[in-house]
Simulated assay, not measured.
Amino acid sequence: MIEVRELHEMAEFERVYGVFDDIWHFAPGDPPITLELMRALSHAGGYVAGAFEGDRLVGGSVGFLAAGAALHSHVTGAAAGRGIGLELKLHQRRWALERGLERITWTYDPLVRRNAHFNLAKLGARPREYLPCFYGVMTDVINQGDESDRLLAEWPLTEPHVAALARREPQVTPVPGDAVVALADEGGRPVPGPIDAGTVLVAVPADIEGLRRADPGTAKAWRHAVRDVLGGLMAEGRTVTGFSGKSYYVVEKT
């Protein structure tokens, strides 16, 4: 049983920092959040929460209030594959709605398939902006010098599809039969295709984190291909409407 609750004490923030460091193995002097900032955000009415399995802290999330009646979720980390991330997000949603907030936003790496599936298919969030190298070149163990392209995701908390997903009602993003593949995964490498269609699909690699370690050149090729194709389509005003088959972004003309 996972319990998520707000945190307020320095000893609790130290435990959250430890969970984050176990996940990312921050370079010295380069954490995404500090104990002092967690303390300040918590005291000022921001969001600092931990997920507990009994007495054991297994995940955490830190966010701050943003313009436009929104909570911006700055960093969230949890043990993988046990539903902890979903419990943290559902707690965030309840917290935000109780305070009259309409949206939660966050950034994520567009190349990480499981995050794209989680954010778009399981939560119903939608990418609103492609942000090239948003945080500069990353130094933690997971990202290993990669350029930090990010998608800004927006979670409209009261939309019917989000409310349904919050009730754990599964939904599938429909893909029309005439959709074309604008970026394909062929033999593990990105291959651009046509983009002149009402609906296009943009693939991402099966395991970008492993690829960074095993074949940095191919990982870099994926980074720039997704930036050019997905980022280019979004810059033209097209809308990402979902993530299909745990493999492709679905992008539509609007």
Results as ranks from 00 to 15, higher is better:
residue 189 R to W: 04
residue 199 T to M: 12
residue 170 P to C: 04
residue 173 T to P: 10
residue 209 E to V: 11
residue 104 I to P: 06
residue 197 A to H: 11
residue 188 G to R: 13
residue 123 L to M: 11
residue 135 Y to L: 11
residue 138 M to C: 07
residue 114 R to L: 03
residue 168 R to A: 01
residue 172 V to L: 09
residue 121 A to T: 12
residue 169 E to G: 00
residue 153 A to R: 04
residue 154 E to N: 07
residue 202 V to M: 14
residue 219 A to W: 00
residue 216 P to H: 02
residue 162 V to E: 07
residue 151 L to N: 07
residue 192 P to G: 15
residue 105 T to L: 04
residue 197 A to M: 10
residue 127 P to V: 03
residue 126 R to Q: 11
residue 108 Y to E: 10
residue 212 R to N: 02
residue 152 L to Q: 06
residue 201 L to W: 14
residue 95 W to C: 00
residue 181 V to E: 13
residue 205 P to F: 09
residue 132 P to R: 03
residue 189 R to I: 10
residue 118 F to L: 11
residue 128 R to C: 03
residue 99 R to H: 09
residue 150 R to I: 09
residue 202 V to R: 14
residue 112 V to Q: 12
residue 108 Y to R: 10
residue 120 L to C: 06
residue 169 E to W: 03
residue 153 A to Q: 08
residue 96 A to S: 14
residue 96 A to D: 07
residue 121 A to C: 06
residue 208 I to Y: 03
residue 187 G to W: 10
residue 202 V to C: 14
residue 137 V to F: 13
residue 121 A to F: 04
residue 106 W to L: 01
residue 213 R to W: 02
residue 171 Q to F: 01
residue 205 P to Y: 10
residue 103 R to A: 11
residue 99 R to M: 10
residue 194 P to S: 12
residue 122 K to T: 13
residue 113 R to Q: 09
residue 100 G to A: 02
residue 116 A to M: 07
residue 187 G to A: 10
residue 154 E to G: 08
residue 132 P to S: 02
residue 186 E to M: 07
residue 149 D to T: 01
residue 96 A to E: 04
residue 126 R to M: 07
residue 173 T to E: 12
residue 165 L to C: 05
residue 149 D to L: 05
residue 122 K to S: 11
residue 124 G to A: 04
residue 167 R to N: 10
residue 214 A to F: 02
residue 119 N to K: 06
residue 142 I to Y: 11
residue 185 D to I: 05
residue 148 S to M: 15
residue 101 L to N: 08
residue 190 P to Y: 05
residue 110 P to R: 12
residue 100 G to E: 08
residue 180 V to Q: 12
residue 212 R to S: 08
residue 121 A to D: 09
residue 126 R to T: 07
residue 137 V to M: 13
residue 118 F to A: 01
residue 155 W to K: 09
residue 186 E to Q: 15
residue 111 L to W: 08
residue 112 V to N: 06
residue 161 H to T: 07
residue 208 I to Q: 03
residue 190 P to N: 13
residue 218 T to Y: 02
